[in-house]
Amino acid sequence: MQRGKVKWFNNEKGYGFIEVEGGSDVFVHFTAIQGEGFKTLEEGQEVSFEIVQGNRGPQAANVVKL
């Protein structure tokens, strides 16, 4: 599992990016966020996640808020 901080997340569009220290930013879609109810992330929030290869490159999967 990787760890990072949410760079930004757009609730209306349902996606954003996670900053990884020493690495490239990783795309995150709301469907990758674990948990119940409305799935969103806050700027600066710490998360753990896996990186998978999506249609447009690397993206976050199994995102857990820390």
Rank of each mutant, 00 (worst) to 15 (best):
M1Q: 11
M1I: 12
M1R: 06
M1G: 07
M1W: 06
M1V: 09
M1E: 13
M1T: 10
M1P: 06
M1N: 12
M1A: 08
Q2P: 03
Q2M: 15
Q2V: 14
Q2G: 09
Q2Y: 13
Q2C: 15
Q2N: 10
R3V: 11
R3T: 10
R3K: 08
R3P: 07
R3M: 14
R3Q: 11
R3F: 12
G4C: 00
G4K: 01
G4W: 00
G4Q: 02
G4I: 00
G4V: 00
G4S: 05
G4Y: 01
K5C: 12
K5D: 04
K5T: 13
K5V: 10
K5N: 10
K5P: 03
K5G: 03
K5Y: 07
K5I: 09
K5F: 12
V6H: 00
V6E: 00
V6T: 13
V6Q: 01
V6A: 06
V6S: 02
V6R: 00
K7C: 12
K7V: 09
K7D: 03
K7H: 06
K7S: 09
K7M: 07
K7Y: 02
W8L: 03
W8C: 08
F9T: 02
F9G: 00
F9D: 00
F9N: 00
F9S: 02
F9A: 02
F9Y: 05
F9W: 06
N10T: 05
N10L: 07
N10C: 10
N11H: 10
N11S: 09
N11M: 09
N11R: 11
N11V: 09
N11E: 10
N11T: 10
N11A: 08
E12L: 14
E12C: 12
E12P: 15
E12F: 13
E12S: 14
E12N: 15
K13R: 12
K13Y: 10
K13S: 08
K13E: 04
K13Q: 07
K13P: 04
K13W: 06
K13T: 08
G14M: 03
G14Q: 03
G14I: 00
G14Y: 02
G14E: 02
G14H: 08
G14T: 02
G14R: 07
G14L: 03
Y15M: 04
Y15G: 02
Y15A: 03
G16Q: 00
G16F: 00
G16R: 00
G16M: 00
G16L: 00
G16P: 00
G16D: 00
G16E: 00
G16T: 00
F17E: 04
F17D: 01
F17L: 04
I18L: 14
I18M: 03
E19G: 15
E19M: 13
E19L: 14
E19W: 12
E19I: 11
E19D: 13
V20N: 10
V20L: 13
V20G: 13
V20E: 13
E21H: 15
E21M: 08
E21G: 14
E21I: 15
E21S: 12
E21D: 10
E21L: 09
G22V: 11
G22L: 11
G22P: 15
G22T: 15
G22W: 11
G22K: 08
G23T: 13
G23I: 09
G23M: 13
G23V: 11
G23R: 15
S24R: 14
S24M: 11
S24F: 10
S24T: 13
S24K: 14
D25S: 08
D25E: 06
D25C: 06
D25V: 04
D25F: 03
D25A: 05
D25K: 06
D25M: 04
D25N: 08
D25Y: 03
D25P: 06
V26N: 02
V26D: 01
V26P: 01
V26W: 03
V26M: 08
V26T: 13
V26K: 03
V26Q: 04
F27Y: 13
F27D: 02
F27G: 03
F27A: 03
F27E: 03
F27C: 03
F27P: 04
F27I: 03
F27L: 03
V28H: 00
V28F: 07
V28P: 01
V28T: 08
H29C: 01
H29N: 03
H29R: 02
H29D: 03
H29S: 02
F30V: 08
F30E: 07
F30T: 05
F30H: 10
F30C: 06
F30R: 14
T31L: 04
T31K: 07
T31P: 02
T31R: 08
T31N: 05
T31V: 02
T31I: 02
A32Y: 03
A32C: 06
A32S: 09
A32L: 02
A32E: 07
A32D: 05
I33T: 02
I33V: 10
I33S: 02
I33A: 02
I33E: 02
Q34P: 07
Q34N: 15
Q34H: 05
Q34V: 15
Q34G: 12
Q34R: 13
Q34S: 12
Q34L: 11
Q34Y: 07
G35A: 12
G35M: 13
G35N: 07
G35H: 07
G35Y: 07
E36M: 06
E36S: 12
E36Y: 08
E36P: 11
E36F: 10
E36I: 09
E36V: 12
G37V: 06
G37M: 05
G37Y: 06
G37A: 06
G37D: 04
G37H: 09
G37C: 08
G37T: 07
G37K: 07
F38N: 13
F38T: 05
F38D: 05
F38K: 08
F38L: 06
F38P: 08
K39F: 03
K39I: 04
K39W: 03
K39Y: 04
K39R: 12
K39Q: 07
K39P: 04
K39M: 04
T40F: 12
T40C: 12
T40W: 06
T40I: 09
T40N: 06
L41Q: 01
L41V: 09
L41E: 02
L41T: 02
L41F: 03
L41A: 05
L41W: 02
E42I: 08
E42L: 12
E42K: 14
E43M: 14
E43H: 15
E43A: 14
E43T: 15
E43K: 15
E43Y: 11
G44D: 14
G44W: 05
G44T: 06
G44Y: 07
G44R: 11
G44E: 08
Q45R: 09
Q45M: 10
Q45E: 12
Q45H: 09
Q45V: 07
Q45K: 08
Q45C: 10
Q45I: 06
Q45L: 11
E46H: 09
E46M: 13
E46C: 08
E46Y: 06
E46T: 08
E46G: 11
V47A: 03
V47I: 15
S48N: 05
S48A: 13
S48G: 12
S48E: 15
S48T: 13
S48K: 12
S48D: 13
F49S: 01
F49N: 00
F49Q: 00
F49E: 00
F49P: 00
F49L: 12
F49W: 01
F49C: 11
E50F: 10
E50D: 14
E50P: 00
E50W: 11
E50G: 10
E50T: 14
I51T: 09
I51S: 11
V52A: 15
Q53R: 13
Q53M: 14
Q53D: 14
Q53F: 09
Q53N: 13
G54A: 10
G54R: 08
G54Q: 09
G54P: 02
G54I: 03
G54T: 14
G54W: 04
G54V: 04
G54D: 07
G54E: 05
N55A: 09
N55F: 15
N55G: 07
N55P: 10
N55M: 02
N55W: 13
R56K: 13
R56G: 06
R56H: 07
R56C: 06
R56Y: 04
R56D: 04
R56T: 04
G57V: 03
G57H: 03
G57K: 06
G57Y: 05
G57C: 04
G57R: 06
G57T: 06
G57E: 03
P58T: 12
P58C: 06
P58N: 12
Q59V: 10
Q59H: 11
Q59W: 10
Q59P: 01
A60Y: 00
A60D: 00
A60I: 01
A60P: 01
A60L: 01
A60F: 01
A60E: 01
A61G: 10
A61K: 14
A61L: 07
A61M: 14
A61W: 12
V63A: 03
V63S: 01
V63Y: 01
V63I: 05
V63R: 01
V64H: 07
V64C: 15
V64A: 10
V64S: 11
V64D: 07
V64I: 12
V64L: 11
V64M: 07
K65G: 14
K65N: 08
K65H: 14
K65L: 08
K65D: 11
K65I: 15
L66E: 12
L66A: 08
L66S: 11
L66N: 05
L66K: 09
L66I: 08
